[in-house]
Design a protein around this nucleic acid. Structure first.
Length: 109
DNA sequence: GCAATGACTGGAG
DNA sequence: CCTCCAGCCATTG
């Protein structure tokens, strides 16, 4: 499917996110050149389960660092668990010190 | 093809 | 830092 092309772009970036780091949908969308399509990034993540290799979607949060996509995970608490497992502290479904853990695509590539 | 939906964002309070 | 409003864009019914 040609549309997969767009999704794979998102997956490729997300897979490059270092452990213990997080990024926002807008940052990915902007990096891909589809800044206005920030929602599409999230939409692509919704289909990340169909992508291979697996995509660490738990490292992708909204601009506030809120785990908005945890409900779309296999288990809502899985996302938080994975992040904490990587050293990212989560409180009230949001990343602690999010701006410090923020990672921009292409920044350290 | 139009209307509704959504893992969003920026600006203002 | 958080909440509310309006704008954007691709996918789906």
């Amino acid at each position: 499917m040609d549309k997969e092309n767009f999704f794979e772009r998102v997956y490729e970036v997300v897979r490059q996110i270092p452990p213990g780091r997080v990024t926002s949908y807008g940052a990915i969308a902007e990096f891909l050149g589809t800044k206005g399509s920030s929602r599409m990034v999230g939409y692509a993540m919704n289909a990340c389960g169909t992508a291979w290799p697996p995509v660490p979607a738990h490292r992708v949060v909204n601009r506030r660092g809120l785990l908005t996509g945890k409900r779309s995970f296999s288990s809502p608490q899985l996302m938080q668990q994975l992040l904490e497992s990587e050293g990212v502290k989560i409180e009230n479904d949001k990343v602690v010190d999010f701006k410090s853990l923020f990672w921009q695509p292409g920044a350290e590539l």
